[in-house]
Amino acid sequence: MDDLHREDFVPRISAAQRRSDFVNAAIEVIAAYGIDGATTRRIADQAQANLAMLHYCYDSKDDLFADVYEFVAGRYRDVIQDSDPHSTLADTARQLLRGAMEAYLESPSFAATTLELISWARRQHGDRGIAVYDQALESVRAALRGTSAEHPVEPETIDQIAYVIATLADGFAMNWLTYGDRSAATEQMETVVSVLDSWLAARVGSTPAGV
């Protein structure tokens, strides 16, 4: 079969799949080089595609970054959806914290890119940077409100629990990115959850898991 006809049998990749490839590539590049170093050429190379294809899929780097933001937000939504809707408030809080930490542990690039994007957006586009963090917090608050329906909790308490979860998860991410010791990070996850348990016991009278 000559080259001309062989091309007809090369599987074509859809534009949607290409965009997904570029988003995943952008996450890796941002994690390695930061926002300023995340050039379209590096992203195209990471995706094993040519630059023309990237510009075909995205009119600008800002459009690509918008999809990266959406991917990050979607990953947090996945964590929320994976929590048990029939759990107690305390159990849901533990699941949300553990889910966030597991997402960071699973992909250091996701952890690094998330922190980089929020920091960069806060510097360059203040409202947008805040919105990214606000969306994640609101997803946590919504999940907590859903599991406390039978035994209503003050909105202030829901806000506090969401804040503690976010603070503990972010602290875990920074430590994990700094040292990169997976074995230590896995053990530290249990320590972090125990901190949440102690806070919950003091604040809402919940019994820590396993007690």
Rank of each mutant, 00 (worst) to 15 (best):
L96E: 01
V192N: 08
M189Q: 12
D91N: 11
F110D: 00
R12F: 12
V211K: 13
E138G: 09
H5W: 13
A169C: 11
R141Q: 02
D181Y: 03
I13P: 04
I161Q: 01
R94F: 04
L117C: 05
L64R: 01
G180Q: 07
I158P: 00
I130C: 10
D63C: 08
A149M: 13
T40G: 06
H151S: 13
V68P: 03
V153N: 00
I161D: 00
A47Q: 03
V132E: 10
Q17L: 14
L137D: 13
T186F: 05
D8A: 13
I158Q: 01
A47V: 09
C57P: 04
A73S: 11
I30F: 02
A169T: 12
R77N: 07
D127N: 12
L137V: 06
I43T: 04
D181H: 00
R94D: 09
S109H: 14
D170T: 15
Q188I: 12
G34S: 08
M174V: 14
V164P: 04
V193G: 05
Q17I: 15
C57R: 02
R145F: 03
E7H: 10
K61R: 12
G146I: 02
A90W: 03
A136V: 11
A111E: 01
L89P: 03
A73D: 13
H86W: 11
R141W: 00
V132I: 14
D78G: 13
S198C: 10
A47D: 09
A73R: 10
Q81V: 08
F172W: 05
Q135Y: 12
L200G: 01
D170V: 11
